[in-house]
Design a protein around this nucleic acid. Sequence first.
DNA 1: CCCAAAGGTATCTTTTATACACTAAGTGGA
DNA 2: TCCACTTAGTGTATAAAAGATACCTTTGGG
Lengths: 248, 248
Amino acid sequence: MGKEVIIPNISVDCVIFGFDFEKLNVLLVERELIDSKTGAVIIKDHTLTGYHIFEDEVLDSAASRILKDLTGLENIYLEQFYTFSDIDRVAGAKDKIWLDYMNKGFADRIITVGYFSLIDSTKVELTVHNRNASWFPIDEIPGMELAFDHKHIFDKALEALRNKVKVDPIMFELLPERFTLTQLQKLLEAVFDTPLEKRNFRKKVGQMPYVVALKEKQVGVPHKPAQLYLFSREVYEKTKKERIGLMF
Amino acid sequence: MGKEVIIPNISVDCVIFGFDFEKLNVLLVERELIDSKTGAVIIKDHTLTGYHIFEDEVLDSAASRILKDLTGLENIYLEQFYTFSDIDRVAGAKDKIWLDYMNKGFADRIITVGYFSLIDSTKVELTVHNRNASWFPIDEIPGMELAFDHKHIFDKALEALRNKVKVDPIMFELLPERFTLTQLQKLLEAVFDTPLEKRNFRKKVGQMPYVVALKEKQVGVPHKPAQLYLFSREVYEKTKKERIGLMF
DNA sequence: CCCAAAGGTATCTTTTATACACTAAGTGGA
DNA sequence: TCCACTTAGTGTATAAAAGATACCTTTGGG
């Protein structure tokens, strides 16, 4: 470890998605700056989590580190999705004030590499690690004020997530290890913002050998308890066929 | 323009695909270094095309610039696909010698943003712009020696291309404006390295309103001349439906 | 006139999409 | 103890799309 020297013109920003069995959420951190004399609020908005990379650090590690700092979690699903290089992406009026105030030797021109990550939100205790971070439903983001070009980054992340979900079984990263089919369905409905037909959905899932039924059922629910399932990556790898689905 | 100051630790690398109606090719540039005293060959291999970005330049522009420098072409399809940050990606023995020899003030640690681009190879006259660039069939790449981590970058580019082709009508970028269905079929076969059934293929294409038949036919071929077609982006945009195809 | 590739028609099978309504099993309160 | 409530869980029918196979015609060059 030793001294960690940052690379001043390259950063990583993480768009952290979580699912609360109802809707899809993103983790944002509050950014607040108060004038020390007048007490006036100069800045009060939200940002994604990001930081510069260190000289001896690879982008993937930087993203993991950022995620761990914020949530305490390790070995989380992370996917690089785009690199943003607009000249003035950190040059908004508020953003300049903020960077001056931080005064950490960041460059004027910063290129940032976007990662999205999926976490089972039942596993994270935000209050323990960072008082200013909280979950926001993805459909509230368009109406919010975000720092820098973070709204743009969020949009790209959501698009990348949707594309990826269609093609890889990553949605299980957003669920607890043992989940019900209804939870899985709700998750997909939240990701694509569209209703799905229950019976057809279950028929489809029934054809996925890697979604395996456990012997356990839900307990303590005030209605018929649901069967619990498990995602087996092992079975998935063994059974996936190379489908050249073409095309648009 | 004025003086163009490079950012020493950020570059762009382009994986340029071209189609010759037979197979899919990549454009590589020969890298050669000869010892000025002994005449011994120190380095002789191939590289992708890349360069650093300028201080006032966005990644997309850098990629366009590189492509224009190499091929003379502008307004070419370009797609950013991944950013590479391995610590030692430019630190191979030969690569160090090469960078020393170039002596352009590049950093030891360079992060590079990968773009792939698709060009109609009937439009490019390599000899005019760069004597050292030539096309290589993609299935020869695994057996070749490439500079830096360019083989890795190529692999990722091909994967990204295949994914993108399944979802967007970008393959038309690899064909002349007027093309035959057999050419289109051969192209897809080359991209996915798999044979396609002619009649089913044509049935499918027949359902794409944006692939429009012209009144013209091929001339000068020693067999029945094929109908020529055109890709209409306009029609494509109007008729594409939001399909939530889900899933793996 | 023969060859080679283009282009079309017709049939059959398999796969996939979609629509739809009732019973089962728990909890909790009256 | 029974009833109300809530969510789980299931099967069938139909239509459309995709895929394989066979076979036949057209066109132009040599």
